[in-house]
Computed example of a mutant assay.
Amino acid sequence: MRGPPAAIDEDDLHDIRRLGASDDDLAALAERTAARDRTGVPVWPENWPVVLAFCAVATQWRTVWVGGLEGGGLMRTGLDYEGVRAGLAMLGIEVTPDLVRGLQVMEHAALEAWSER
């Protein structure tokens, strides 16, 4: 595994632009990518499309209220896959079985991380 690429190549730029990034967004991303590379965030290169898709639909969580009226809170139960499908379609990201499986892996990891808090 390795962190994000130190330099963003043309294929990466194309994919990121498909997600709706502006030139300013790309400049900020390049800066953050260089900083993130120094911290060693581990992502296999072939997983970047899933990571980018997951980030693009990160607001599409189903939630339920747990606890009482006082001291309760929202708990995420999983991704809203209709919202995920719509979000990815609006961004022109092709939904493939491999992409969905990758999103499910990230979904389960996120739910597990939140449950440990």
Rank of each mutant, 00 (worst) to 15 (best):
M1C: 12
R2Y: 07
R2M: 12
R2F: 09
R2P: 04
A6D: 09
A6C: 08
A6M: 09
A6P: 12
I8H: 03
D9K: 07
D12C: 11
D12W: 13
L13P: 03
L13A: 10
H14Y: 13
I16G: 00
R18F: 01
R18I: 05
R18P: 00
L19H: 14
A21W: 08
S22F: 07
D23I: 11
D24Q: 13
D25I: 06
D25M: 07
D25K: 07
L26D: 07
L26I: 15
A27E: 15
A27K: 12
A27Y: 06
L29V: 06
A30Y: 04
E31P: 02
A35N: 07
R38M: 10
R38N: 09
T39L: 15
V41D: 13
V41P: 01
W44T: 11
W44Y: 14
N47W: 11
W48E: 13
V50M: 03
V51M: 07
L52D: 14
A53T: 01
A53W: 01
A53N: 00
F54P: 00
A56C: 04
A56S: 14
V57L: 02
V57E: 00
T59K: 11
T59P: 03
Q60H: 09
W61H: 07
W61V: 04
W61A: 02
R62K: 14
W65R: 10
G67S: 09
G68C: 04
E70W: 12
G71R: 04
G71M: 04
G72C: 03
M75S: 10
R76F: 09
T77K: 06
L79E: 01
L79I: 00
D80N: 14
D80S: 06
D80A: 08
Y81R: 10
Y81A: 02
E82M: 09
E82H: 08
G83P: 00
G83Y: 03
V84A: 05
R85Q: 13
L88A: 05
M90N: 14
L91C: 08
L91G: 06
I93P: 00
I93M: 03
E94I: 07
E94Y: 00
V95G: 03
V95I: 15
P97M: 02
P97D: 08
P97N: 06
L99V: 04
L99W: 09
L103K: 00
L103C: 04
Q104K: 15
Q104G: 11
A110F: 10
L111Q: 03
L111E: 01
S115H: 08
S115P: 01
E116Y: 05
E116H: 12
R117C: 12
